[in-house]
Nucleic acid binder design. Structure first.
Lengths: 134, 134
DNA sequence: TTAAAACTATATAGCCACTATAAGGTCAAT
DNA sequence: ATTGACCTTATAGTGGCTATATAGTTTTAA
């Protein structure tokens, strides 16, 4: 199949496919005489794998690492689990950070109603005060 | 004061200060004969304002908008509150997304212990299966 | 049969908010 | 006189795409 069909069947842009190829995540396919890329079922699977990883917000580097593991199926899989554990830890710390942020924002927002002049807006005041902690 | 002192007093890199100037967030300061930038107390405040906004993850565009409001103190401040409400909504949706993500990752991780061969690793299997929903 | 459309190719720039590097000028102290 | 700390501009890199420009190829419709 050609790049457009691969793109449609996995749900990505053709540009993204070429980008993954350049990044070494997708092996360079055969070419037709006119230079068009020809993909096989294995490319579909490989691309789908990448997309599933991306949905889980694994970085391209992490995906690369997973692909290396796939190439060595008789090693223990502890490294894979560690990779995932690290990623989970990262996601959790992002959540915690955002929750702190949300609290700060909500508290700032609560300091002002909608009916003031900008000159008296407590939100703007709050942002201008030194008291705000990092 | 010169750029290094401003940077230290607000806790940013000198590069970042020049970057904000280029982006129009910080007004261009006077220059000494040798070309060095000379900052005043007002620049300190202005830069600190920017930093407080950035801590709250407001974008440079949003900060720009806030600065425009500061220049027109006799308008109603509803726009400011709306900006903040939108930002809060955005942060909340990020949190929700990450929580969904975390669940998926934890469930994937739970499918495998540390003592398999990579060829039998259920994590890798999970990532390779079509069953994973986007 | 030809003209339009839909597809493919490469190369390059843009997004965001910085951060890093290079290559050089200025100034104070030793 | 030289070291070191500071300052200047310009340019490139980060991540994961996405957009644009330019051009060649194939397919479809008139």
């Amino acid at each position: 199949m050609r790049i457009g069909q691969l793109a449609r069947s996995v749900g990505v842009d053709t540009q993204t496919i070429r980008f993954y190829e350049r990044e070494g995540l997708l092996p360079p396919p055969e070419r037709q005489d006119n230079g068009y890329r020809i993909y096989t079922e294995r490319h579909v699977e490989r691309l789908a794998f990448i997309r599933r990883c991306r949905i889980l917000e694994l970085s391209l580097a992490e995906i690369h690492e997973l692909q290396r593991y796939q190439g060595a199926p008789h090693q223990p899989c502890r490294a894979i689990n560690t990779l995932l554990d690290d990623h989970i830890a990262q996601v959790r710390s992002q959540i915690t950070d955002l929750q702190v942020l949300e609290k700060q924002l909500v508290s700032l927002r609560a300091s002002c109603n909608d009916d003031r002049d900008i000159g008296a807006c407590r939100v703007l005041e709050g942002l201008s005060e030194e008291s705000m902690q990092q």
